[in-house]
Design a binder for these strands. Structure first.
Length: 707
DNA sequence: CTAGGGTTAG
């Protein structure tokens, strides 16, 4: 009896112990799951260690190693790892595969490639079993840093050790080759796979999408479905991105349908990518619809929608959505700031730009060099050179980079301050900043805007000395510069010297020069190249027809117009904005939606009469429409930039400059008219067009009619 | 107990 009792007691206490132990394990597991700081982790670590759990429960050891590496303390992770297998007898003892894999994972996730490879080699040397779990980590490291050469070596080892047909390892190989840019090898691995799943199909689709080969990505997507795989959220994201690259609105709708039908749309990331896809296809309305219907929105959702508006030339919509964002529970981040800064640049509104800058400062978000450069650029594009320069000067030299210099140089360039641009260009070199390709486009276009031909030629010659290889965009700048200055033949022979096929920007620059100098023959050569290269680009048709119109070749004008019409091309809508106090007013061509339109219309009509009295003759060459001359003249009055300027003359105080931003190039008649207006009214008129700034004062323009 | 595919901005 007594014996039985004692045995029962013993049994009971044993169960108790086991129970306690298991709940302790759960307790620690819970602690580790909640642990987000190094200090807490160290406390848990020492507690686990005193209980002896680390010696007997490899699970906790692994958890600690992973957590340490996640929180950035790889040293502690490694110490733990080393300690474990030095423990028993004080001499090195081969660690087991599991632990090594864990440590490898820690290195791979932290991007510590060389330590990871070191460990991998150590494993091979010590004869630690390398298994199917090991390779994905090693291949990840190859993908991110070491490259395809090393990856190929590992691939060989995969095959030799007999893991060549493990689904996970194969998928990792596909991804590795893809990230190293060896698409052929990826495809080869993929083709040899006997069993495939969603993950490796998606990896293949993503690979083509990332390589900007959207058609092939979509073909794979179809093939995947034919083989009976539905795909999942991540597939949907990749496919949406591919369709966004194609810009095909109808396909966008069907991908959207795919996501809805399969229930992927509830996923925030899927929603985000659909929003971005629609925006890239030019369908902001649908983008907004999806955005509004999302159950859950994160920072990326807002940023996608905001940049969608900006990309589609709708900065005012971006700004009002930005206000909504601030009222929501989602805080703007530095990327948001970057998008909004570019919206303000586009709009050309000094006031809104400054307000945004103040917001960025007060929100205490991290202003890195990229964001600071964007803000400087915004000030330049809003006509506030002083603030941009001040920001540049107040910035510690360590926080400036080439782009900061580039922003200033190109900013001075678009304002027609060629000398200052050149000074900055040499100053940056004195201060030891190496000019890059963008520096040269900035300086060359600055020279071009002011007609500093010799300086421009010298900079172009200096490029190779400073080991920057001339690219197509630099040739385009040179053609632009030479062409504007009237050296059309020199420009044309430079084009012939370009080692590869001249791009549309190069021919476009020549075409523009031909319009300025009324050269029909060279213009036709340029245009014919352009119509082949970019048949959908409206601007080139418009330019060519302007050239014909200027030399009264109306039959040819009609031909170009018909050509445009048959391709279904329309002149993009012109849009001009003017800042008035804290408001921004926008005008389309012949706009009747503005609350002020009646008075503005009366003003442009009276302006036309006033100008004619002092010698203005309407320049009809920029009217494409097939109408009577009187009607053409009438149409000219309602150009968006004229409406905006008339609004400014009416509403703004005499001392205030009138600043207007137009989305396209300012038309030649408006340019001429503004000279008259600036002189009649004694006002400063500043117009920013798609190319540069025009400062009108006393009957002259800062561009010297050189634009 | 450990593993593979991802969207926004520039």
């Amino acid at each position: 009896m007594e014996g039985l009792k004692s045995r029962a007691l013993h049994h009971l206490s044993h169960t108790h112990k086991v129970l306690a132990l298991s709940s302790l394990h759960h307790f620690y597991e819970h602690l580790l799951q909640c642990c987000t700081s190094l200090t807490t982790l160290k406390l848990i670590h020492s507690s686990l260690s005193t209980r002896g759990f680390l010696l007997h429960t490899p699970h906790f050891l692994a958890r600690l190693i992973i957590l340490y590496s996640k929180l950035g303390d790889l040293h502690s992770a490694r110490t733990l790892f080393d300690h474990r297998h030095h423990h028993h007898h004080g001499h090195t003892q081969a660690p087991n595969s599991f632990l090594c894999n864990t440590m490898l994972r820690a290195y791979a996730n932290a991007g510590r490639s060389y330590e990871a490879i070191d460990l991998y080699i150590y494993m091979q040397r010590m004869g630690v079993g390398i298994n199917n779990f090991t390779y994905p980590f090693v291949l990840k490291v190859c993908a991110s840093e070491l490259g395809a050469v090393f990856g190929k070596v590992v691939h060989g080892q995969v095959v030799r050790t007999g893991f060549g047909s493990d689904l996970f390892v194969e998928a990792a190989l596909v991804d590795m080759y893809a990230k190293c840019g060896v698409i052929g090898d990826s495809h080869e691995v993929f083709d040899r796979m006997l069993i495939r799943d969603v993950v490796c199909w998606t990896a293949m689709i993503t690979l083509y999408e990332q390589a900007e080969r959207p058609l092939e990505a979509l073909m794979l997507f179809r093939k995947m479905q034919e083989e009976g795989f539905l795909g999942d959220e991540i597939t949907a994201i990749s496919v949406a991105s591919a369709v966004g690259q194609l810009g095909d609105g109808r396909m966008a709708i069907s991908v959207h349908g795919y996501a809805v039908l399969n229930g992927f749309i509830g996923d925030v990331s899927v929603g985000n990518s659909i929003v971005g896809m629609y925006a890239k296809c030019g369908n902001v309305e649908r983008a907004r619809l999806v955005f509004d219907r999302m159950e859950e929105r994160d920072g990326i959702s807002w940023n996608s929608m905001l940049s969608g508006y900006t990309q589609n030339g709708r900065p005012t919509d971006a700004l009002s959505l930005f206000n909504q964002m601030q009222a929501s529970e989602c805080d703007p981040n530095p990327v948001t700031a970057l998008i909004m800064v570019s919206a303000c640049s586009y709009l050309g509104s000094k006031h809104l730009g400054r307000k945004l800058h103040n917001f960025v400062i007060s929100s205490k978000m991290d202003i890195d060099t990229t964001l600071r450069n964007a803000i400087m650029d915004m000030y330049m594009k809003c006509g506030d050179l002083d603030t941009a320069v001040e920001m540049f000067n107040n910035c510690e030299p360590g926080k400036r980079d080439v782009s900061s210099w580039n922003v200033l140089i190109s900013g001075y360039g678009v304002h027609g301050h060629g000398k200052e641009a050149l000074e900055l260009f040499s100053r940056m070199q004195v201060e030891g900043v190496k000019p890059n390709d963008i520096t040269f486009t900035s300086i060359l276009s600055a020279c071009s805007h002011v007609g500093l031909i010799d300086e421009g030629r010298k900079c172009f010659a200096d490029m190779t000395k400073l080991s920057v290889r001339p690219e197509m965009k630099h040739y385009a700048c040179m053609v632009d510069m030479l062409g504007r200055a009237g050296f059309l033949n020199e420009a044309f022979s430079l084009i012939k010297k370009i080692p590869s096929r001249p791009s549309d920007e190069v021919w476009g620059a020549l075409l523009l020069a031909c319009r300025i100098h009324g050269n029909t023959e060279l213009g036709e050569i340029a245009a014919n190249n352009l119509f082949q290269l970019e048949p959908e680009h409206t601007g080139y048709y418009v330019l060519m027809s302007n050239i014909y119109a200027a030399s009264n070749k109306w039959k040819e004008v009609e031909m170009v117009r018909q050509n445009m019409k048959s391709r279904g091309l329309k002149k993009p809508a012109a849009f001009s904005v003017i800042e008035f106090g804290t408001e921004v007013h926008g005008f389309h061509t012949a706009d009747q939606s503005s609350p002020y339109y009646r008075e503005v219309y009366r003003k442009v009509e009276s302006l036309a009469i006033e100008m004619k009295m002092v010698g203005y003759v309407p320049d009809l060459s920029c009217v494409l429409h097939d109408v009577e001359p009187e009607d053409k003249e009438h149409l000219l009055n309602y150009h968006s930039e004229k409406l905006a300027v008339a609004f400014g003359i009416m509403k703004m105080d005499q001392g205030m400059p009138i600043q207007v931003t137009k989305n396209l190039r300012v038309c030649s008649d408006c340019h001429w008219a503004f000279k008259f207006i600036s002189s009649i009214y004694g006002r400063k008129i500043i117009v920013r067009d798609a190319n540069r700034f025009h400062h009108f004062q006393g009957g002259r323009c800062s561009c010297g009619d050189y634009w």
